[in-house]
Simulated scan of single mutants.
Amino acid sequence: METQISYILAIESSCDDTACAVLKNDEVLSNVVAGQEIHEKYGGVVPELASRAHQSHIVPVVDQALKEAGIKKEELSAISFTRGPGLMGSLLVGTSFAKSLALALDIPLIDVHHMHGHILAHFIDSNDQPKPEFPFLAVTISGGHTQIVKVTDFHEMEVIGTTQDDAIGEAFDKSGKILGLGYPAGPQIDKLAKSGDPLKFPFPVPKAPELNYSFSGFKTAVLYFIQREVKKQPDFIEKNLNDICASIQHTLIKILFQKIEKAILQTGIKTVAIGGGVSANSGIRSKLHSYKNHGWSVFIPPFEYTTDNAAMIGISAYYKFKAGYSVGMETTAAPRIQM
């Protein structure tokens, strides 16, 4: 029996990237992302500026995605979009555009949870890359999320561990800001850490119950440490930058994997798949690969599917579409939606 061909257009606008992708079943035909450099000078995303930029970018990005895919909008089977979580203004731009396009074309509208997208990015047909088998543990790590999710099906996911305050991505970025690095600081810390001593400066590992995380205390510890050392030696950061970054990254990776190890012991599931922007971190990727020696099956998405993108929204929508799922025009953005 031949597989029915479906063309799905996906829109992602949860934060500061305007993205659109077109998928042919589980194959990505185009994956266009327009970033917003305006936030760099503010050291973080400014919600009002983000939503305005989305309004400027969305039509050109959708048009480019369709052109790169080589199909006309009339050939689309469904329109999908990120419903949440994210910034309300940003989500509304993508939601409104998706609803209008689905209504005009008279085709199904499919809403997608942003974090489901990060998890299901592993199922994109990508150069014969292996896909995790159910059940598996998904570790979603980004600027806004740090979660351990038990995944038993494309549509059945249970959060078994989450951050009680800040996300690991924020811990990287705020630590970098303390060191005077630009935004986003996470990738810069990763790069500088490669030339540093990860054991030079010990930082505390916060305590959090069960499989949960906490990173706010870590950020405070880094701040107090830097203030104390700079007071004694004004050029301390400049002279020790690589070692500081290596020590910060080493500790954050230690915090992350302590709970993953505990989750494996509790669930008996030894298949781990990471996703989210911070999964691009080379130290985290290397550490995860090392657990293959402990009998883990590990899965890491291609770099283009780690940061926010629309292909991951499209693959999640594809499996919903196959199951006959769609939503009505009354659906709206949900910035704090739970998994």
Rank of each mutant, 00 (worst) to 15 (best):
A208T: 02
S214A: 12
T162A: 15
Q188N: 07
I244D: 03
A171Y: 01
E210R: 15
S195C: 04
K150D: 05
I178Q: 12
G161W: 02
G161D: 06
G180Y: 05
T146A: 03
K200V: 13
F218A: 09
L179E: 01
C245S: 14
K177W: 11
T162Y: 15
I148M: 01
I226Q: 01
K219W: 10
K191C: 12
I148R: 10
F154E: 01
G161H: 03
P209I: 02
P209L: 07
G143H: 06
L179H: 04
F218L: 00
A208P: 03
T162C: 14
E229F: 11
T163I: 06
T163R: 06
P206I: 11
S214L: 09
A221M: 13
A185F: 03
D153Q: 02
E170N: 13
I237Q: 01
Y213Q: 09
T146Q: 02
D197H: 00
D153I: 07
E210A: 15
Y213N: 12
L223M: 15
V139P: 04
S195V: 03
Y213E: 04
I160D: 08
H155K: 13
N242R: 03
I148G: 00
T163H: 09
T146L: 00
S216I: 04
G186V: 09
K150P: 01
P187L: 10
A167D: 11
P184I: 13
L223C: 11
I148K: 11
L179N: 06
V151N: 10
T146F: 03
A246L: 11
V230T: 15
G217C: 00
E238V: 05
I226K: 02
K177F: 01
F154L: 00
S175C: 14
E156G: 08
L137T: 02
P202A: 06
T140Y: 10
D243C: 03
S214T: 12
K231A: 12
E170Q: 12
F136N: 03
S216C: 07
F218G: 02
I178T: 15
P202E: 06
F236S: 05
K150Q: 12
G176V: 01
D166M: 00
S175N: 11
D197M: 04
R228L: 08
T152F: 03
S214Y: 09
K219D: 13
G196F: 00
F203W: 03
C245T: 08
S142M: 05
F225N: 12
A171K: 06
E238D: 14
A167H: 06
P202T: 08
I226A: 09
V149Q: 07
V205G: 06
F236L: 09
Y224Q: 09
I226L: 08
D190L: 14
E170F: 08
E170G: 11
G161Y: 01
L179I: 01
F136I: 05
Q164V: 14
F172Y: 14
S214C: 02
I148N: 04
I237T: 07
K200L: 14
P234D: 07
C245E: 07
D153G: 14
S216G: 01
L137G: 11
Q147W: 03
D190K: 14
A167R: 09
I189K: 01
Y213R: 14
I168N: 02
S195F: 09
V230M: 15
P209V: 01
P206E: 13
T220K: 08
